[in-house]
Amino acid sequence: MSRREELAERLAAVEGRIAAACEAAGRSRDEVQLIVVTKFFPRSDVDLLAELGMRDLGENREQEAAAKLADGGPPSGVRTHFIGQLQSNKAGAVTRWADVVQSVDRPKLVGALARGAEAAGREVTALVQVDLDPAGGTGRGGAAPADVPALADAIASSPLRLGGLMAVAPLGADPEPAFARLAALAEALRADHPEASWISAGMSGDLEAAVRHGATHLRVGTAILGDRPSHR
């Protein structure tokens, strides 16, 4: 089987899971956008995924993504998402290629991203990453839920576009309570910022739970690309 055929088969399987989850939740498949996370996979996979119709691709590491996209930028028509933890001094570099930054977790990052986007002459959508780990948890990153309103206000009043919220379910725990909490936070956010409609939640192992709790964007890597190659 060629790599293209392998990716097509895996994509079809994930699409089947998403469609079934949407049907079970009483939602339209059109309400949920799939983002394929290509961290640690080569540019050739990015191009194949674009050929297969994928229009949203995600990266976790600025240096890797910049190198991967250096040759001609992202494929035509592809929206690129940065979804990893981000240092402020890398924010300007990320805005040169990312259309969406899903991992904004502190006010300092808002200013750095805004300056980078303005310097690059690009419109960048920013999501607030929410920390849903219990007290003493492993720390998947994100702002404390109590800090979400102020951080969202900072994004909305900057040159960035406020997209909504992103979160990762706690490691080794039932994702249902975490995603339910995220849905409640998103509803509260939309009361103040109706345009902030994104709920980015759910990955290869828990996408069904995310769909049940209103996720609008799913970030799937392993289920489509396979196990990550060893990082050099």
Rank of each mutant, 00 (worst) to 15 (best):
Q102S: 13
M166H: 10
A120T: 12
H217A: 09
V211A: 09
D192F: 07
R96W: 05
W97C: 02
V124K: 04
H193P: 05
A117H: 06
A98H: 04
G202L: 04
G205L: 14
R181M: 10
E187C: 13
A144F: 01
A146V: 07
I199N: 03
G141W: 14
L113K: 06
S103T: 13
Q87I: 02
V104G: 04
R212C: 13
V104Y: 01
K90T: 07
A183R: 14
G164Q: 06
V130H: 03
P177I: 10
S88H: 05
L151G: 00
A196P: 11
A126F: 13
S204F: 15
N89L: 05
A173F: 00
R140Y: 12
P175L: 14
D174Y: 10
V148R: 06
L109Q: 05
S157V: 10
I83T: 09
S103D: 11
A93R: 10
V110F: 05
A184M: 09
A126D: 02
S103K: 12
T125H: 03
L160W: 01
P177M: 13
K90W: 01
A98W: 10
G164C: 10
D133I: 00
R96G: 11
L171Q: 15
D133H: 07
L165A: 06
F82G: 03
R140P: 11
D174R: 12
G172A: 14
